[in-house]
Design a protein around this nucleic acid. Structure first.
Length: 381
DNA sequence: AGTACCGGGTTCTGCCATAAGG
DNA sequence: CCTTATGGCAGAACCCGGTACT
């Protein structure tokens, strides 16, 4: 392989250096040397070759990159002739990323090695302006390399940040948004704008007064909204409005409040959960009105899968709880079936009267529940 | 002292399809 | 044709405790 020969030739020109030393050398010399060599060489191929770049592979291998994984994810990157893996490694290392983290980042998102040092510097600074904390950024990159590296459009990133702050998302809230949903940074400005437009239009059609504040409230309560498709969000909105027959003000309140994250559910999932909940409650003798009020107050219920939800309801009903008590205190459905079952057993053994006292006792932290249980045991029911 | 109300924390990436660009 | 950039999707609860009120 021609490239291999070139590399070996280079190594001969630098007799003090051998491959082993590169694994600890994060100076980017190898690719810089190769790049310089290739660009200055009259024999450099005019266009990228089709086969994999062997020296690149060796160099990645030495850095601890999982080549098999990289090949599977982005095979084209391994055919690249001009790459910046050492520049990248040096850069990330200077920001506090360990060798393992760097290798893992490249393994999972190989295209990272095609970003230039200038690009990296600029992009990092844009992120840094938001977080003011290199370690935090490293953590996000380790969690989701793709979020940082998928786009090389720094201008778009700059515009996104301006757009979000212009929306009234404060400098205090922006880090939270981007820490949790870093992909928002890499969305095109138009995509983010489209979602905000959608939300503002919803506010408008529901007769809201401050459309910008409405959009902001939803984004703040549901930081993932901007990485959803407008298709999904509008389908869910439409479904909720018609399925629950919400009035305008009910809808505005629900969406800006507890219901903001319902919009996240996959459309099929929302329908499935809703329909199951509806059917189950009807079979337990609830009226449509009761069901609606339940969903407005305890909208988290729509996140629970049919299987889990039915188990919980069955568990409560079999434990002697009247469905009306559950409607009064839907928050008990937040707790796992196992916890509910345990608590019901504990309370039933003390002959606790749920009809008189309600079921609020089930909705307590472990510590508070145990304290309460102890009191009941000493005082008697 | 005990309870009700309420909001917060956790973490949501990694893969695929397609458009865009060269 | 190739690679890269971008959009979009699936998956699916549980628990804690501050604070105001009684």
């Amino acid at each position: 392989m021609v490239l291999r020969q070139k590399l070996l030739c280079l190594l001969r020109l630098h007799p003090g250096r051998h491959l082993q030393s590169f694994s600890v050398c994060t100076q980017g010399h190898v690719s810089c040397i190769i790049s310089r060599f290739l660009s200055g060489s009259p024999t450099a191929p005019p266009r990228p070759i089709r086969s994999e770049n062997i020296p690149l592979q060796e160099s990645l291998s030495i850095m601890g990159v999982d080549l098999e994984m990289a090949r599977q994810k982005q095979p084209a990157v391994l055919r690249n002739v001009l790459t910046n893996e050492h520049g990248l490694a040096k850069f990330l290392s200077s920001k506090g990323a360990s060798r393992e983290v760097i290798a893992s980042i490249i393994s999972r998102f190989p295209r990272a090695i095609t970003r230039s040092c200038d690009h990296l510097e600029e992009r990092w600074n844009l992120w840094y302006n938001v977080f003011q904390d290199n370690a935090e950024i490293v953590k996000i990159l380790d969690r989701s390399p793709e979020s940082f590296f998928r786009s090389n459009n720094n201008e778009n990133l700059r515009k996104n940040i301006l757009f979000l702050t212009g929306l009234g998302i404060t400098h205090r809230d922006l880090p939270k948004l981007l820490m949790k949903a870093p992909r928002v940074f890499s969305n095109s400005l138009n995509l983010n704008r489209a979602m905000v437009d959608l939300l503002q239009n919803v506010s408008m059609s529901l007769g809201g007064t401050d459309h910008e504040a409405f959009a902001r409230a939803i984004i703040f309560r549901n930081v993932y909204i901007l990485i959803r498709s407008t298709k999904r969000v509008s389908a869910n909105l439409e479904f909720l409005l018609t399925a629950l027959k919400l009035t305008n003000s009910e809808a505005l309140n629900l969406l800006q409040g507890k219901g903001a994250d319902i919009l996240d559910l996959s459309h099929g999932g929302l329908k499935r959960n809703f329909e199951n909940l509806h059917e189950k409650l009807m079979s337990l003798g609830c009226s449509k009105l009761e069901i609606k009020s339940l969903m407005l107050n305890g909208s988290q219920l729509l996140f629970i899968s049919p299987k889990t939800l039915n188990e919980k309801l069955d568990c409560l009903v079999q434990g002697g709880i009247d469905i009306k008590r559950i409607l009064e205190k839907p928050k008990v459905l937040d707790y796992s079936t196992a916890t509910l079952k345990q608590r019901l057993d504990d309370l039933n053994s003390l002959e606790y009267d749920f009809e008189t006292h309600g079921i609020a006792i089930l909705d307590k932290s472990k510590k508070r529940f145990e304290e309460k249980l102890e009191r009941l045991q000493t005082l008697g029911p």
